[in-house]
Nucleic acid binder design. Structure first.
Lengths: 336, 336
DNA sequence: ACCATGTAGGTCGGATCCTGTCCTAGTTAA
DNA sequence: TTAACTAGGACAGGATCCGACCTACATGGT
């Protein structure tokens, strides 16, 4: 059985992933083989495409460096928990460009995460999620992971769905793809009962369950699922367009907000207009306020009202406290 | 060379980590070996401690389930990027309980992350970090990763440090441990020039460089680095204590803020006092405002001033827009 | 009830590979 | 110069691996 050899190679990879240099002799001792075998193992790893670099000389040693492909990651318990927590946060508030990748990675990890670690992830993760989203419709990572698994596993999904009018219905669907838009997740699926393609907001899906039944590939309405979802979305509900004037250079706005450069219109060296960007109202408000610059909200009345309510509440919160003089000091230095 | 066998085992693990069932025949075909060999490989994986579960019957197949130990994670490019981005965000604003683990995991990942992916992580990550921290002293993940590597690799570190009084000095230190407290990172290290243990705030460290020189283990001032750092910190600088009255039940505050229950004092069914919690002023302000409830800030004058400034700015931002009536509608329904 | 399609596992022979023990060569820091 | 490290060739004995058979058993659909 080469299980011996393979296990040793994995252990070797695990050692080499620690950011330090390992002398061959020490590796040999730890793995219980001769140094010659270690050298051969290093060769094997290199043949597998994992670039092991060696520094020669008296204090030399081996270490794994960045190569062309990702080597298998060997994590200890704590690291695995840390990654799971980070991914849950990332999935709850998707970052443009990697939305589904982080869900896939999370699904992969949770599939093999030992039970005792899963417990720790849940307890630690509760805090993070609340920090990131605070309020607004949070998408439960559990549901996301389950659905992502159903998509790649081609398993039918049964769930309760609450429509935009509040009506609740039971659905049986063949999930085709998950699409993130702004801070929300959408599922493109074939609704078996209604015999047509439908788009579901994931945060309105309740109690998703795998039926266990596999389904065959179906003709998709469009190769680009994201485009399809976006079009359907825009046509079905009027997305509130945001328009804000910001007293800051366009580059700064793009940098601080991580916004799409196309959404920012330059009005002057220190003024620009930010538009588009469909997002949650509370979230947009928070980002604008934390920008650290003067601005004026024009467009969605809800956002204007929300920010005004926030401002009034903030002033109420500081009333009665001797904040007047301190405030002036602050406004002068403008909270950067 | 069993490189063949080992490579096949890794590929097999990679397949099985996808959340779906794999029939042995398909695996055999994909890996170019006979089904019998696949069965033997499955046995090998099981011997290695990775529980491969099989469902029998006509539509059966293999899949990897959670076991006792973490199997090596085999990620594709996008998943690796997603994890790196998530970890960077988690390291920038450490979550209680897994601070150093996420930095360790990030160090491990960045060590082997292919160059082309590193580029993508940087571009995508910029957005995330700005969303999470917006402003305030953000800790650069790069520096954290470098320092974490120096700690585990026992390498001396050279850097420029800006003291609390603004004085800048060059340091040569033997890094012993990274400790997170609140949203800040501290490095406990032995300052070689001053011949004593010192605590450095990581966000004040500039241009950290590895010297390449290893250093021997030194007698630590205390086994519990975290406790040591905390004690030193409290004694050296007066940490601003936060005191806020929140018009919300204590449980809700704990849940929404992810706060420590000890920090919340119950005043009534819908009133409580939140105190302690040393944190960045802008961050605290943001969290309080997004709480979705009335509150009064008492304690750190800076926070009071900051929130007041924020409130005034918010009102300025909505001036001239017809937000009055909408605002009243909103305040009545209190943005949940 | 029966069959197709899965997993599970035994046995065998031949080819392959792996390991430890010798070597020698080249590199670097003290 | 020496010590400590990587790099790699040659060799022989033993272990391992692989494919090709085979049987047993579980499951779902016809």
């Amino acid at each position: 059985m080469s299980g011996d050899t393979s296990a040793r190679l994995l252990a070797l990879l695990s050692f080499l992933q620690t950011p330090r240099e390992w002398p061959g002799s020490e590796l040999a001792q730890r793995l219980g083989v001769s140094p010659r075998t270690i050298r051969r193992d290093i060769d094997r790893l290199r043949d597998l495409g994992y670039p092991v670099e060696a520094t020669m000389g008296a204090v030399g040693g081996y270490r794994l460096v960045a190569g062309k492909a990702m080597p298998p990651l060997l994590l200890d318990d704590e690291e695995a928990v840390a990654i799971a927590v980070g991914l849950r946060a990332a999935a709850g508030s998707p970052v443009e460009g990697i939305e589904d990748a982080s869900v896939r990675a999370l699904a992969k990890l949770e599939q093999v995460l030992p039970a005792r670690l899963r417990q720790r992830v849940r307890s630690v993760g509760a805090a993070t999620v609340s920090v990131a989203t605070a309020e607004g419709p949070g998408v439960a990572p559990e549901a996301l992971v389950l659905i992502a698994g159903a998509v790649t596993g081609r398993e039918r999904l049964r769930f309760a769905y609450q429509g935009w009018d509040g009506a609740r219905s039971r659905r049986l669907a063949e999930p085709y793809r998950l699409v993130a838009s702004g801070r929300l997740w959408y599922l493109l699926a074939f609704d078996v009962d209604r015999d047509d393609w439908r788009i579901f907001r994931v945060d309105r899906i309740e109690e998703p369950r795998l039926t266990g039944a596999r389904f065959p590939e179906r003709d998709t309405p469009e190769p680009d699922a994201a485009a399809f979802v976006r079009r359907k979305m825009y046509s079905s509900m009027p997305t509130p367009e945001i328009t804000v004037t910001v007293h800051l250079s366009a580059e700064e706005v793009v940098r601080r907000l991580g916004a799409n450069p196309e959404e920012v219109e330059v009005l002057g060296p220190d003024v620009c207009v930010l538009r588009g960007h469909p997002d949650t109202v509370p979230f947009s408000a928070s980002r604008l306020l934390m920008l650290g610059a003067e601005f004026e909200v024009h467009e969605p009345p809800e956002l204007v009202a929300y920010i005004q309510a926030l401002g009034e509440r903030a002033l109420r919160a500081t009333r009665g406290t001797g904040g007047r003089e301190a405030s002036e000091k602050f406004t002068k230095g403008s909270p950067s």
